[in-house]
């Protein structure tokens, strides 16, 4: 029987794996699915222009990426974590507990969050944060008492908006985008409408009031999308009254199906986001494990290449894809060059 041969080859594979696991020659990156397109563009160009193998970029979300990043130092852990939000203190502590102490934070640019609807659907052309708060809040104060959100149509919220049923598709809570949406749209709208002041006048603490401002109604008018933007797009495709929350780059790739609305009177574009006029944007980051620089070939070069002018600059491929270039890119380049860790720069 060939069982002997088969087992022998099995053992051979196992033996080989033990030796090869100790020699990784490619950069491994994981994290935010928002940063993934940009990271993949950089990785591809990096593979083309350098003698190093193309880095591997996995998705999975900012939190998942940072969790793996903080698992420890060594070739079985990732070198870079992509994140669509800044690293949290609790994550830095976890990192430190696992021996990951020197972390270089790199801000690669800004990402806009846009509000779009079906191209042939009702005329959703202009929003204020207050409209979204009034449409999506779980409870709004009426005459000093909190009542369940009575608004059923967008016209209830603001007479200038189309008289159609509210149907919003917003990112689920596991997405970094949700955090930005809550802070820059819902909380802002809450303050603008005076609801927050009303809540605090009614005896709520500031924290409680903020929490109430960001609580989203659960009666089916607002749907959390836990998947990707493609899922939001599919929902909008099948519901003419639907409104979705997208990343700017995703919208720009699907302008044949979606039309975008202005926020506070500003149309989202890389220019308006860079100038800060468009209110709903956020920085994107990646984090380098300094202990791996010099151990994993190509790590330093990849990081330098990522923030170089020809990649991340205003006319580079990242900006063409939808990233808003960081005006302080040269400072970031210097930081990456010198590998300034988070503790030292503060």
């Amino acid at each position: 029987m060939s069982f002997a041969k088969l087992t022998a080859s099995t053992l051979a594979i196992a033996a080989v794996s033990a030796t090869a696991a100790a020699a990784r020659d490619n950069v491994q990156v994981a994290g935010s699915s928002t940063v993934l397109p940009y990271a993949s563009i950089v990785a591809e160009a990096f593979g083309e222009n350098f003698d190093f193998p193309t880095p591997v970029v996995e998705s999975g979300g900012s939190s998942a990426g940072l969790k793996r990043f903080c698992e420890g130092v060594g070739e079985n852990t990732i070198d870079i974590a992509n994140a669509s939000r800044a690293i949290r203190d609790s994550e830095i502590e976890t990192c430190a507990a696992n021996g990951v102490t020197d972390i270089v934070e790199v801000r690669i640019g800004y990402d806009g969050i846009v509000f779009a609807s079906q191209i042939d659907g009702p005329a959703f052309t202009a929003f204020e944060p207050a409209d979204w708060f009034s449409a999506l809040a779980a409870e709004i104060p009426v005459d000093g008492a909190m009542t369940a959100n009575p608004n059923m149509t967008w016209a209830d919220v603001n007479p200038d908006l189309p008289d159609v049923e509210i149907a919003a598709f917003i990112p689920g809570t596991k997405h970094g985008t949700r955090e930005v949406f809550e802070e820059k749209v819902l909380l802002q709208g809450c303050e603008d409408t005076g609801a927050m002041q009303a809540m605090m006048d009614a005896g709520m603490s500031e924290d409680d009031a903020e929490g109430a401002c960001m609580a989203v109604r659960t009666d089916g008018k607002s749907v959390d999308i836990d998947g990707d933007y493609t899922e939001t797009l599919a929902r909008i495709d099948s519901n003419p009254n639907g409104l979705g929350v997208f990343g700017l780059a995703f919208y720009e790739n699907n302008t044949d199906k979606l039309k975008v609305a202005t926020m506070s009177g500003v149309e989202p574009s890389t220019d308006t986001i860079a100038s800060g006029e468009y209110p709903v944007s956020r920085p994107l980051f990646f984090y380098i494990k300094k202990a791996h620089v010099g151990v994993i070939p190509g790590l330093q070069e990849y990081a330098d290449f990522f923030v170089s002018d020809e990649i991340a600059g205003p006319s580079g491929p990242l900006s063409n894809y939808g990233l808003v270039s960081d005006p302080e890119l040269s400072a970031t380049q210097e930081k990456v060059q010198n590998l300034e860790t988070m503790g030292s720069s503060m």
């Binding site: 594979i13 080989v16 794996s17 090869a20 696991a21 490619n26 491994q28 994981a30 993934l36 990271a39 993949s40 990785a43 591809e44 593979g47 193998p53 193309t54 591997v56 970029v57 996995e58 998705s59 999975g60």
Partner: peptide, 22 residues
């Protein structure tokens, strides 16, 4: 186990690499 993403970019160099390279 990390097999989804921008990964399938390099042809494996040889058989060992085929089993172990991402």
């Amino acid at each position: 186990i990390g097999m989804v993403g921008y990964i399938a970019t390099n042809y494996p160099e040889g058989i060992v690499d085929g089993f172990l390279a991402p």
